[in-house]
Design a protein around this nucleic acid. Structure first.
Lengths: 155, 155
DNA sequence: CGGGATATCATGGGAGCTTATGGGCGTCAA
DNA sequence: TTGACGCCCATAAGCTCCCATGATATCCCG
């Protein structure tokens, strides 16, 4: 399987390093990459992380915009300026920069969450809270759907 | 990777010098440039910095304007007359001229921001404010796209 | 089936290189 | 002469490479 699946929590050591879960590393490696690319997620305190191909996908998206309009500029600013390469050392660890800490609130532990084509880095407690919210939204959605079906049947 | 990515904040010393981030320097070198060219960004308090190819990009933009209109003339003046060379010293530092300080508000620290084919120099606090605005615009764009899809599905 | 050997993995720390930053000194031009 | 600038060196902090350890999972063979 060459997708990012499941999750794990790892500890940051005294030098600010953290091990990327071995499974995630092997996915990146199988695609032929040695580096990771991290992007600040738009509306949640998490980093979206993937191989450099993640960057390529975004750049393809930018390419369809008119390069002289503000939207293209915004997208480039976000992708190139609000992201950074994470160099994997020989033991498969990355250093957690202030850039990451600021956006995520990560301090001493990192929660890695597989998301298919990429994975995310979270502060564990925030991830838990976010998970609650997501579940609540999904429950509500399902109830809503059930009610709609009832209403449609009564007509 | 030969693109300008991620960001860093460096301090200006007593002589008015500032180190260009090592990663950016290596990109410049890999592209075969020895000098940097800096332009005042059009509608933001930042410098656009890159190799000579940066000029090509701006000239391309001018080319789409009608040469008889004032806009083209303004832009040409801006690109060819209102830019400056930045010489890298042996330690990879540039001196921050008044030309740059005036347009950006840079005083004691410089934020370098990768933008793919070029990079930008910002006053750190202004960069933060600008980043917020960009993220807000992109969030709005995403919501808009989601609504459009819903509307299309309802037809 | 069981238990020891082996491999894998997260984590800790030492050593050396790279980078950012500060400052001295000579040169050239206003 | 003075101030801006280029060249050189020094230093401290940060980062990368390398090795060690313990815990866990996997394998293999009796």
């Amino acid at each position: 399987m060459d997708r990012f699946l499941s999750s794990a929590v790892n500890r940051i050591d005294a030098k600010g390093r953290v091990s990327v879960p071995a499974h995630f590393r092997s996915v990146v490696q199988r695609r032929g990459f040695t580096d990771l690319y991290a992007l600040r997620a738009l509306d949640i305190p998490a980093m979206d992380v993937g191989g450099p191909d993640l960057l390529d996908r975004y750049e393809e998206r930018i390419a369809v915009e008119d390069p002289f309009l503000q939207t293209a500029d915004d997208m480039s600013f976000f992708v190139h300026g609000d992201g950074s390469f994470l160099k994997l050392d020989q033991d498969g660890r990355i250093t957690v920069s202030d850039f990451i800490r600021e956006h995520t609130g990560i301090a001493s532990e990192v929660a890695f969450v597989g998301r298919g084509l990429f994975f995310q880095m979270w502060e564990p407690e925030r991830l838990r809270a976010h998970g609650e919210q997501v579940r609540a939204r999904l429950r509500k959605l399902r109830q809503q759907a059930a009610q709609d079906r009832l209403a449609a049947g009564a007509e």
